[in-house]
Every structure is written in C-alpha cells, then in structure tokens.
Design a protein around this nucleic acid. Structure first.
Lengths: 124, 124
DNA sequence: ATACACATTCGAGTGTACTCTAAGGCAATA
DNA sequence: TATTGCCTTAGAGTACACTCGAATGTGTAT
C-alpha cells in the first residue's frame, strides 16, 4: 500500500510550513508531486524521504541554489551519482571548517566568561 | 603613545568594510568613536579590541540585536558584568547545540556519500 | 585654482530564505 | 442556501545583515 499524504500531513510530519512546501516545489526542490482529482497535492513515501534529505541539507546550511543543483542532478538519474557525491563532499568540507571556526571562537568566549567570573568573585 | 587609526586602517586591519564600520556605529555597536578636527573617525587601541570581540560574536552567529544588548550593557560599566556573562553563556549553549546538530547531519551526509561510492563501484 | 583622494551623512538597494495576502475553487456541514 | 474550511495560484512583503549611491566637505599635490 503506497501511502499518500496531504500537504497538511506532510507539514506536521516534517516540520515545514505548507508555505515552505509550496515554495520548495515552486523553485524546483520538489519535482513531480502528484495531484488528486481536486488538484490537491498528494505526497508519497518517496517524497517524504526526499524532503527529509532536503531538510538535512538545509540543516548543514547548504544554500538553496546548491540544493537545487543537487535536486536537478538527482532527477537525471544514476548517471549523475559521481557529481552528486562531489557536491556533497565539497559542502561537507565547508561545514567541517565552519565547525572548527565556531569552536575556536567559543574558546575566546569562554575566556571572556572566565574573566567575568573572576571580576564577579572580586566584588564579593 | 595612544595610537589612533583611520577608518581605512581599521577596515584593512580588521577585515570589515568601511561601510560595515559606519553601520556598526550607526546601530550602536560601536559607541564613542572620537573624531579629529575634520570630523573624521579616529579609532583607538581599545576600539580595536572591542571590534575584535564583536567579530568574535559575529562568528559564533550572535544576532546583531543581542550584540547591541551586550554593547549597551558594556557601556554601563562593571555593574553589568554578571548580566554580560549570562548573555554570553546563553549564546554559548546555543552554539554548542548548533554544532551538535551540524555533526549529526554530517553523519547522514557521510552515509549518503558512502552509498554513492558503493554505486560508483558497482558501475565499473 | 582645480583636481584628487579621502572623509562625512542619510537613505535607498541587495540577497537569502522564507512568509503572507488576495482571489478564487470545491466539498461538507448547519 | 450559505457558511466554514480546506485547497489552489501568482505575486507581494518581511527580516536580517549588510552594501551602495548621492550629495557634500576638506586638505594636499600640480
């Protein structure tokens, strides 16, 4: 049984607003979402998996343009697997560097916090 | 000898554009930047340190509103040290959680990359 | 004297990623 | 029958953090 979902159900399930779901479709991140007789969107399990992956890309802060590129490659089938892998690897590296920067700056912040604690101790 | 710097020198030194420096001043992140007879900005060593800290806050993605709040507390002197510390600690925690999320999602991405590598292997 | 290179201010414009509004359609309930 | 409540679309509006443009001023170099 191939379950189908309405846009509301997907919205709740995935934590994206219906606006965002329609927006993602409009800009080409979500391709081939089918409609029922009334013209309402019907999402499949496969759509759910894809949306889940899009959310993952978003959480690692991939820009929408890159996500679109990835989405487009995906819709061209298996011949684009290498390109897709490279796209992911390139972004992966960016995120790793970003985390490194965050951690370095967190050290500075922590020094500041320790410094403040010292000042607070003195004023007792 | 209290060194003074022009906006250009600060721009080069700190990696912020002159536009951004004026913008930060306008919105209250940079308070009390002195002027010379011509009305040009003259930045001091203390200003440099403060800008450096602002950049640090920006790199850990503190929103400008929070930076303003911090800046305002700072200008009120030592009585606000505890509040400032708490502000930093609150944001610190957010960043730590953010890093955790990034790392979790990187794992998913890595699985995808491994999966693609497998597919690529099969096609040989 | 006048051009150049810098400075000033105010306010408008940009890019990203949504987020919302308006106008309209269909189906079930009061 | 009419109201409610969902859906559709196109396109306008928002928030954030800059980024730029226009008008104007000042001190040094030719």
């Amino acid at each position: 049984m191939d379950k189908q979902f309405t846009i509301q159900q997907i919205s709740k399930k995935m934590g994206l607003t219906v606006h965002t779901l329609r927006y993602y479709e409009k800009i080409g991140l979500l391709e081939g979402i089918s409609r029922n007789e009334q013209g309402y969107r019907q999402y499949t399990e496969a759509d759910v998996l894809w949306i889940d992956f899009l959310i993952c890309l978003r959480e690692i802060e991939m820009p929408i343009n890159e996500m679109k590129q990835f989405s487009h490659l995906r819709s061209q089938g298996n011949s684009t697997v290498t390109e897709r892998r490279k796209l992911l690897e390139t972004h992966q590296e960016k995120v790793i560097n970003h985390i490194k920067d965050l951690q370095e700056n967190l050290l500075k912040i922590n020094n500041k916090i320790q410094h403040y604690k010292m000042l607070e101790g003195e004023n007792k």
